[in-house]
Amino acid sequence: MKKVCYLINSDWYFELHWSERALAAKAAGYEVHVICHYEGDEIKSRLEKHGFICHNSLISAQSYNPVGFILTFSRIWKMLNRLDPDVLHCVTIKSFLAGGIYAQVKSRPVILSFAGLGRVFDNGKMLINGLRFFVLSIYKYIAKNPQAVLVFEHESDQERLISLTGIDKEQTRVIDGAGINTDDYPYTSEPIQTPPVVLFASRMLWSKGLRDLISVRKSLAKDDIHFTLNVAGILSTDDADAIPLSMLEQWHKEGTINWLGRSNNVSQLIEAANIVALPSTYSEGVPRILLEAASMGRACLAYDVGGCKSIVQDGANGFLVARKDKAGLESQLKRLLQDAPLRHKMGLVGRELALTKFSSAQVIVKTLRLYEGV
Rank of each mutant, 00 (worst) to 15 (best):
E170W: 05
L150I: 08
Y185S: 01
D168G: 05
I175F: 05
A148N: 05
D157V: 08
I162E: 09
Y185H: 04
Q158F: 12
E159L: 14
A178H: 08
D183M: 13
E155T: 12
I162C: 04
L164F: 04
E170K: 15
G166H: 05
Y185E: 03
G166D: 01
E155A: 13
T165R: 10
N181M: 01
S163D: 14
Q158L: 14
I167F: 03
A148E: 07
I180G: 02
N181K: 09
L150Q: 07
A178E: 08
T172D: 06
G179R: 02
D184I: 09
R160D: 08
G177E: 00
I162R: 02
V151H: 00
V174G: 07
T182K: 02
A178R: 08
T165D: 05
A148I: 04
Q158I: 09
G177V: 00
D157L: 11
F152L: 06
E159H: 13
R160F: 04
I167W: 03
I167D: 06
L161P: 06
V149C: 12
N181R: 10
L150K: 06
G177I: 02
K169Y: 09
Q147N: 12
D184F: 14
R160N: 07
D183I: 14
Q147P: 00
I175V: 10
R173G: 04
R160M: 07
Y185D: 00
D168F: 00
F152R: 05
Q158K: 15
E153V: 01
V149M: 07
A178G: 15
R173H: 09
Q171E: 03
A148C: 11
L150W: 07
E155P: 10
S156Q: 15
L164I: 02
I167M: 11
K169D: 10
S163I: 09
T182E: 03
T165H: 10
I162H: 03
V174T: 12
G179E: 05
D184E: 15
E155M: 11
I162L: 07
R173P: 06
L164D: 09
G177N: 01
E159S: 13
V149N: 06
G166P: 04
A148W: 03
T182C: 10
R173W: 07
L164N: 09
Q171F: 04
T165W: 10
S163E: 14
V174F: 08
I180T: 02
E155H: 14
D168Q: 07
L150D: 01
N181Q: 11
E155K: 15
D183T: 14
Q171D: 02
H154C: 13
V149E: 03
R160L: 12
D176F: 14
T165C: 07
L161I: 14
S156G: 15
T172F: 04
T182G: 03
